[in-house]
Design a protein around this nucleic acid. Structure first.
Lengths: 336, 336
DNA sequence: CTGTTAGCGCATTCAT
DNA sequence: ATGAATGCGCTAACAG
């Protein structure tokens, strides 16, 4: 029984010689429809292989049961962990997920948002790209009535919903651990100097030193543009210092991977000559022979899950609310 | 200027005192509309902040400019690499991507497909889960007129479009390399015995041995259920053999990670006492101190890209075509 | 409990 | 070159 055109409500109404609206109501288990008619309708619907035309429903209901997710990258483990959890939450809520990766290109990011808007998604989850400076899109979405929740990489604004990992706790823990292991020469390999995430790390780093009465030495902070070459240059800069650090906190795991490889290649022994702790975005250290001493975990899955939950909250109760800000504590794990 | 309700074609028609149909045509650069009117329409449209209601267009055109992607997992590097490329192709084609992860659960897989169907996606890309046995959904989608292209993990059927990586070439290369390095005791840590992917590996393995005149020894093939415990059990089984293998091909990188860790823990030296090559689905070996000798690469990104291209081909020229089968050669890389 | 009517926003056929 | 009319499939307000 090939269904050339999918059956519509009209056809099943004609078959039963009742009105389309009755059919519609029966199909939706409307209370005011008799049990018998409801059953008859459903029976014929099944026979005709009826399937509601969602595009029509979306159109009529002004609702798509779809959320949009905008991320810098889909292939980075941090984000794929996040989106995996987001998909899970959406699936529980009977929503579907439509997504785009900005690749840190602000223009592409905007185009994706535009697409999501024209697709009339019911809400958006977003982690902004490294180079995004223009936040005007937020007002546009707001005036279009599309709620948006930022997570992980969030704009530095107050009147938005965001879920993020606070970077300080983990940094303080890391420095404490280093100190308690006898290190005083503690470095920070930071990201691009102007990135909010870098600034936060730097402040936490300085605070951690102060807390342990270790003088802050400017040359112990180096910067990388997060490319492999930049990472290598950063560590070499540290290694070239007259009193090179014995402990290093690195911007994230990718930086740590490059940096640790370079260190090995220079003949130094990891976890002996020099020790590392990094902000985690990469889960497989346990397989390494010489992993970092510890990682500062940022829980991408939890962030994604929480952000999604928040978004569904906004979707379901659209009343203008106070912006919500959820901060996860970063935490040291995998201590060896 | 808050736009309470987004502007519609009607309103801009009223403003200009022309008919909605003219506006519609003007907006779509219909040739039969005068240049002046077109411009006036566009101007007012811009002023009113007009945006076409895609849900209405989808409904009317019976086309959503959306493709669905169904994968076992979004957080596995292999698949996130694939979906990242898929998103890229879709973005080029001005399509959006809606996706779901089956988590290898056939029921969830079906529910996702159902959702994609009711969402009226224009086409589907799919990599099936490990436990999927029932392929009837293919006919359902076909009769609904939704083209589908399988990739990576594809059903063993002839009349479908598929993009896959053939596993033999890489296995033969791997065994050749092992032999040329002087190994004769070459093992295979295979996946679940009945998995098509396992069977293919096994056949290739045997063929590779024959080619090199090495007798096939049944005890040199062990199986894992792909859990960490299963992986560990598998390698221990090999290590316990009277003449334990000096070279091992493993089902994939995750298996390799576990078994190599176990091997280390037992005091053996990697790349000395025992050597590994694995099917790649994990890209960061270069950072390991003792990576496998080589990896058999399956090019997830290329597969995704090709599958997407194929799908758009089907979407654009809907004529019933012969099913297409694209096979990528697996290839040995990262030889140390 | 059920039928009638209307309309969501747009593209399109048929007029003019 | 433009307008009027129609309908996509469905839901819902308003009758009865």
């Amino acid at each position: 029984m090939k269904e050339g055109k999918p059956a519509t409500i009209k056809e099943i109404a004609k078959r039963l010689k009742i009105s389309p609206s009755t059919v519609s109501r029966a199909l939706n288990d409307h209370p005011s429809i008799g049990l018998v008619t409801t059953m008859r309708v459903k029976k014929v619907a099944a026979e005709l292989n009826y399937e509601p035309n969602q595009t029509a429903i979306f159109f009529k209901q002004r609702k798509t049961f779809t959320i949009g997710v905008v991320l810098p990258s889909l292939s980075e483990p941090f984000f794929s962990a996040a989106i995996s959890e987001i998909e899970n939450v959406a699936h529980e809520e009977q929503y579907t997920v439509i997504m785009g990766q900005s690749l840190d290109d602000p223009e592409r990011e905007l185009r994706i948002l535009q697409t999501l808007k024209t697709h009339r998604v019911d809400g958006i989850l977003m982690s902004i790209g490294k180079n995004t400076r223009d936040y005007r899109f937020i007002d546009l979405l707001e005036s279009a009535g599309i709620p948006i929740v930022f997570f992980d990489c969030v704009p530095d604004l107050d009147n938005i919903n965001k879920v993020m990992s606070e970077l300080e706790t983990g940094m303080l823990e890391a420095i404490d651990i280093f100190v308690s292991c006898g290190h005083h020469a503690i470095s920070l390999i930071n990201g691009p100097e102007l990135l909010p995430a870098s600034i936060e790390r730097k402040n936490a780093y300085i605070k951690g030193l102060q807390k342990n009465n270790i003088p802050y030495r400017e040359e112990y902070i180096v910067h990388t543009d997060l490319t492999p070459e930049g990472n290598e240059a950063a560590i070499l800069q540290l290694l070239a210092l007259p009193d090179r650090p014995s402990a290093v906190v690195s911007f994230n795991d990718y930086v740590a991977l490059d940096v640790m490889m370079t260190v090995r290649q220079r003949g130094l022994t990891l976890n002996q000559d020099i020790h590392f702790i990094s902000y985690a975005n990469y889960p497989l250290w346990k397989y390494m022979e010489n992993p970092p001493m510890a990682s500062i975990e940022q829980f991408p899955g939890d962030q994604g899950r929480k952000a999604a939950a928040l978004l569904f909250d906004l979707i379901k109760t659209p009343g203008r609310k106070e912006p919500v800000k959820v901060v996860f504590n970063s935490r040291l794990i995998n201590q060896v």
